[in-house]
């Protein structure tokens, strides 16, 4: 610790702060910085005003394949790749910026942040260990997160072809509420007659 450059250490602290602010769990910080666990816990408490949550990180790739998480994960990962590959961002810089850009789109859409920061980090790690791949949708040509080595020749994404049980978003239900009322009214009247 003593012979480490002060500047390098400050950068590490700043990285940890950025990650904590975006909602990172302790395991993320321990892996991505050289700071000691004790210091990270102190930092976490100072930034968030509470102790870091305990427990294991999610470890299954399956979550990223389920419908809505897949869409959110794919958006995030597309941005991440772009920043890292095209724009020469260093890995963690690309990660933080990509997460901010993803969250920005979620906010614009008034949607729920389905992909938390720790999940996003797990996603990147899964890609790095070749557990996941990007498959190209044969309809929209978008790139979507899929299990590694899954067939790609007739792949259609979850937006072009949502599963039949896919839930409607709350926002959409509200939007359709007005239309639905017109349809429901006769039914409601019929109900009245029965009562």
């Amino acid at each position: 610790m003593s012979n480490k450059s002060l500047l390098l250490e400050m950068q590490q602290v700043q990285l940890a702060i950025d990650l904590i602010e975006l909602g990172a769990r302790l395991q993320v910080l321990e892996t991505e910085t050289d700071l000691s666990r004790a210091r990270l816990i102190r930092l976490f408490k100072e930034v968030r005003g509470m102790s870091p949550p305990k427990g294991m990180l999610p470890f299954s790739t399956d979550w990223f394949i389920t419908w809505m998480p897949n869409i959110h994960s794919s958006l995030f990962y597309n941005i991440f790749l772009r920043l890292q590959e095209d724009h020469g961002c260093e890995r963690m810089e690309a990660f933080i910026k990509a997460y901010q850009l993803y969250a920005e789109q979620v906010e614009t859409d008034d949607a729920e942040t389905v992909l938390g920061l720790t999940r996003a980090w797990t996603l990147v790690r899964f890609f790095e260990s070749d557990l996941l791949q990007l498959s190209t949708c044969t309809r929209c040509a978008g790139h979507f997160v899929a299990h590694a080595y899954s067939p790609v020749h007739d792949y259609v994404c979850g937006i072009c072809q949502p599963p039949s049980r896919a839930g409607k978003t709350r926002k959409r239900q509200q939007r359709e509420g007005v239309q639905a009322q017109a349809v429901e009214q006769p039914a409601a009247l019929a109900h009245h007659h029965l009562a």
């Binding site: 869409i71 958006l75 929209c140 978008g142 896919a166 409607k168």
Partner: peptide, 13 residues
């Protein structure tokens, strides 16, 4: 499914 903006963002990304 109300995901058009998300879809657009993903494709452009």
């Amino acid at each position: 499914q109300g995901l058009a903006q998300f879809h657009a963002s993903l494709l452009m990304a």
